[in-house]
């Protein structure tokens, strides 16, 4: 009797388990095939001197890593990537938070504004970058034309090593605001109205409401947005790839880790070295994310 019951329960559990596995299978399979296996392969490849067309890889141990740590360009790339993330993430989140709060209020034509802010996210990055390249063009660009009208000399936005990363960061900020805004808007709408009504009665100003109610209750969404946009910023490639060529004098001041990986792997056919660079990027992202996960206890409020 007892054994029978145990069996019955376990069969039911089995059923539930297999249903569970079945339902998450698409995600799991996708994750394993598209993410986990490539990670292992990349780690494996980073220990090899790659042969042409994926043949004849020679095991070289940690040679690629040793070479990487001595390569000044890799450190330039680490610096550029971090600086880019530092420029883009706080600015874009601050701006999108402001936009989201305004668009959450009572404004005429809210949905039109929301659409407008979201458009850069929908447009293909390559196409967007082409337009920005024209805006930034030293000789024929719109920005320099406007500046010349008010008597400022032409600025080499892209080619000047001191400026180019900032020019690129502006594109990055502009294109990501809409996406962050949508996430934050969703978070804002989850905040119960009661808190605001109660604080209204207590006579709290709008500013105080923002800092005492909105910000703490938005912190889970904010945390998610910060973590994801940081990871995204660390992987910056397309904009830099479109704007800056290896020949550009600003190359060393703008090359990101992923761009360096791309050049080494595909242009110079040194996939082993390229893989090592990507492993470094993975390590950096993991460390940053780990710190963030730890730090969230200090400031994120889950309702």
């Amino acid at each position: 009797m007892n054994r029978l019951a145990a069996k019955r329960i376990s069969r039911q559990t089995w059923g539930e388990w297999s249903w569970g596995w079945f339902l998450i299978a698409p995600t799991i399979i996708g994750l394993v095939v598209l993410n986990i296996i490539p990670i292992i392969q990349t780690a494996f490849l980073s220990l090899h001197k790659s042969g042409d067309f994926g043949r004849g890889n020679i095991y070289v141990g940690f040679d690629n890593y040793v070479k990487m740590f001595q390569d000044a360009q890799v450190w330039h790339a680490v610096g550029n990537t971090l600086l880019y993330a530092l420029l883009v993430v706080p600015t874009s989140i601050a701006l999108s938070l402001v936009v989201a709060v305004f668009l959450n209020g009572k404004i005429r034509g809210k949905s039109i504004y929301r659409t407008i802010y979201f458009i850069p996210m929908v447009a293909a990055p390559a196409a967007v970058t082409m337009v920005w390249r024209w805006l930034y063009n030293e000789h024929f660009g719109l920005i320099n034309y406007v500046l010349s009208r008010i008597g400022i000399n032409a600025v080499d936005w892209v080619g000047n090593p001191k400026l180019s990363l900032f020019s690129i960061a502006i594109i990055g900020i502009w294109s990501v605001i809409g996406y962050n805004m949508v996430l934050l808007l969703a978070g804002l709408q989850e905040i119960p109205k009661d808190y605001y009504e109660a604080s209204d009665i207590d006579g709290a100003s709008k500013m105080r409401q923002f800092f005492m109610i909105t910000l703490p209750l938005l912190s889970p969404t904010l945390f998610f947005v910060i973590v994801t946009s940081l990871i995204q910023a660390m992987q910056v490639f397309d904009v830099i790839y479109m704007m800056i060529d290896v020949m550009s004098p600003a190359y060393n001041n703008t090359v990101s880790l992923v761009y360096l990986f791309y050049n080494n792997s595909f242009k110079y056919s040194n996939k082993g070295y390229g893989s090592a660079i990507v492993m470094l990027l993975l390590l950096i992202i993991m460390v940053i994310t780990f710190i963030q996960m730890r730090a969230q206890k200090k400031w994120v409020n889950y309702m």
């Binding site: 994750l31 392969q41 990349t42 889970p220 994801t228 992987q235 990986f261 595909f266 390229g274 990507v278």
Partner: peptide, 29 residues
């Protein structure tokens, strides 16, 4: 949130692994 974050980290590599991918699949060639 944690799961999503981890997923994103994983995908951070996936984007880059085009190169790594090639090796084993090509060896039969």
């Amino acid at each position: 949130t944690a799961a999503l974050t981890l997923g994103l980290i994983a995908s951070s590599l996936a984007a880059c692994s085009g190169g790594g991918n090639a090796t084993p699949s090509a060896s039969p060639a």
